[in-house]
């Protein structure tokens, strides 16, 4: 996960630094803003990279395809920047790199471009259709959506991630919600308060510890649900499935059929309870696994 985002980042950096190819134009703009200034960036094709820094200014650098124009302006009340393509059908990529105050609230919209964000702690809203999203350095509030691109994020306090088919990998966070139709989801955390993963057919995987007082919910129609937790798990566990199989490495309890063909359920308390682990599938299999000591943090 880490490797992927690093590659994305270094790629973006290289592109940003490379001399412009024929027909391309280099751009650079600066603005002094406030610590928490909202910043909106529109870059439909090509990559957008945003890094938080400890200055009250926004610096935008990048390369644009021939004929494209850059708009960029604003004040401490808000900054708006983006690329207007000469021809809407033009898919030559523009590459933008922004430095923004760490506490800024950043909003980025793209269509096919990748979005990379590092070290923005204020708030983050990123939307792309087919691009990839990579976020490092926990924004307090994060919304990330992609249709088809993979989304990899380090969650801060509150995070919501959505894709249609893009794979999702989330780490950390306190209040985390993830939804996909067919993408695969992995969530790794050990200090969350509330997390909910849902899919229609994508596989859902949780790895980490279920903290006391937390609530972890995984819900899928047809995806396989895997929960890999330390042997010291302490939680109230409620698994229901209509047609799926359940593999339970925590005890000998087995699925009991619910009355009236309402599916099957497995409910038990691991350890002394104190947290809720809830899994619901229609036909996806459910695996409750003990993490080997090595993979446990």
């Amino acid at each position: 996960m880490l490797r992927i985002s690093l590659i994305t980042v270094s790629y973006a950096v290289l592109v940003g630094l490379a001399p412009p190819a024929a027909g391309q134009q280099r751009v650079e703009r600066r603005l002094t803003v406030g610590e928490r200034t909202p910043i909106r960036v529109h870059n439909l094709t090509g990559s957008t990279t945003v890094r938080g820094w400890a200055h009250d200014s926004v610096v935008l650098t990048g390369t644009l395809p021939a004929g494209a124009t850059l708009y960029f302006g604003g004040s401490a009340g808000g900054v708006k920047g983006g690329v207007e393509l000469a021809d809407p059908a033009d898919t030559m990529p523009a590459h933008l790199e922004l430095r923004v105050p760490r506490g800024a609230r950043v909003w980025i919209k793209s269509a096919s471009g990748d979005i990379t964000v590092e070290g923005v702690s204020g708030g983050l809203d990123v939307y792309t259709v087919s691009g990839r999203v990579s976020v490092r350095g926990a924004a307090a509030e994060l919304t990330a959506e992609s249709m088809d691109g993979a989304v990899t994020v380090e969650a801060g306090r509150w995070a919501r991630v959505k894709t249609a088919s893009g794979a999702i990998a989330v780490t950390g966070g306190e209040d985390v919600g993830v939804a996909t139709v067919t993408g695969a989801v992995t969530y790794a955390a050990d200090a969350f308060r509330r997390a909910r993963l849902e899919s229609v057919s994508g596989d859902l995987t949780f790895r980490g510890a279920v903290p006391r007082g937390s609530r972890l919910e995984l819900e899928s129609h047809g995806g396989q649900v895997t929960v890999e937790v330390p042997a010291a798990l302490s939680a109230e566990i409620a698994i229901t499935t209509f047609q799926g199989e359940v593999h339970n490495a925590f005890g000998s309890q087995s699925l009991r059929p619910l009355p009236d063909q309402r599916g099957r359920a497995l409910e038990f308390t691991a350890g002394t309870g104190g947290a809720d682990l809830i899994v619901r599938t229609f036909k996806g299999d459910v695996r409750l696994l003990r993490a080997s000591a090595k993979t446990t943090r």
Partner: peptide
């Protein structure tokens, strides 16, 4: 199967 809160939850989710 008739009314079933778990199934309904899954249906609404879809």
């Amino acid at each position: 199967a008739g009314p079933n809160p778990d199934l309904e939850t899954l249906l609404w989710a879809s």
